[in-house]
Each structure stands twice: as C-alpha cells, then as structure tokens.
C-alpha cells in the first residue's frame, strides 16, 4: 500500500464520517462542521487523484460559497430567546429512499468506468482550453441556465405582487 493509497483512504474516511455526521447530527454548528469535513474530504480525494484544479475549485465553490451561505441562512433564521435551532425532518424515511435511489442510479451509470479505473490527469491549461474552445457553447449555455435559475428564484422570492 503506497502513501497515495493511504492518503486516498484518509480522504474517503473523512468523506464517510462527514456525510454520516451531516445526516445524523441535528445541532447546527456540528452539522455544518460535518458537511465541511465531507467537502474538504472530496477536495482531498481530488488532490490525491491528480486534479489539483478540481480540488481548489471544490474548496472555493463548496466550502467558501455554498457552506458559508448555508450557515449564513441558518444564522439569519435563528429564533430569539436563547433557543438553539435544530435541523430535524419529518421525512427521514422518504429522504433515505430517495438517497438510496440516487446512489443506485449513480452506481449503475458509473459502473462501466469504475471497473477499469484509468487515472485521468488533465492539466489546468487543457481544461481551460477545452472550456473556451470545443466546449465553449455548452459552457456558455450552462452559464445562461444558471442565470435563468437565479432570476427565477428572485421572482419566486418576491412573490405575486411585483411579478
């Protein structure tokens, strides 16, 4: 077992622990820390597998953006009177079923490439060239799609009066 395998194992252990914490912990700061451990674990796995750009983007977008916004929203919605909000759901079983379904779907789709793992190392320059070269149209379309989604959220949040 090489040092690389050990590092990958550690990253995966962090991912599993973080994911379990995110599901089973109800206390908000601990939940956010668990989610953070999971996301950093994903970044570490990308790094070990030879995609530093993906690892850094993971930290930039998910830890620095999404996770901060989640915590931000939870803090804004905090009720007064010393009561600590807890994240609880009445739909645990349904959520578990859906999670299992997504897991099965991904397993079935990704299985052909998973049985013969060829390490794919792509240089950051190649990713940049692909995004601004042959995949330019797709890249721009995704951008427009995200913008449309954001505008849709704005419209929904604003409610009926200003629509």
């Amino acid at each position: 077992m090489s040092a690389n395998d050990l590092a990958l194992g550690a990253a995966m252990a962090a991912m599993v622990a973080g994911a379990a914490g995110t599901v089973f912990v109800a206390d908000v700061p601990r939940l956010v820390i668990s989610l953070g451990v999971f996301l950093l674990g994903v970044a570490a796995a990308f790094l070990v597998m030879g995609s530093p750009l993906l690892a850094v983007s993971q930290v930039f977008v998910y830890v620095g953006g999404v996770l901060v916004l989640v915590l931000f929203a939870l803090m804004l919605s905090r009720r007064g009177g010393g009561e600590r909000p807890r994240v609880e759901s009445r739909h645990d079983i349904g959520a578990a079923v859906i999670a299992l379904g997504v897991f099965l779907l991904l397993t079935v789709v990704l299985w052909p490439s998973a049985i013969d793992p060829e390490p794919v190392v792509v240089a950051p320059e190649a990713i940049g060239a692909a995004l601004l070269g042959e995949s330019l149209v797709a890249f721009e379309l995704v951008g427009v799609l995200l913008l449309a989604a954001l505008l849709a959220v704005l419209v929904i949040v604003k409610g009926g009066a200003d629509r």
Binding site: V28, P29, V32, I33, G36, V56, S57, V59, F60, V63, G64, G65, L67, V68, L71, F72, M75
Partner: peptide, 15 residues
C-alpha cells in the same frame, strides 16, 4: 480559495 475557509471559522465562532 483558501481564505474562504476562514469565513467559516468566523461564522462558527460567532455562532
């Protein structure tokens, strides 16, 4: 990218 982890530390200490 790395300093954005610090934002999380600030939010957690505030919480």
């Amino acid at each position: 990218a790395i300093p954005s982890i610090g934002v999380l530390g600030i939010l957690l200490s505030a919480w």
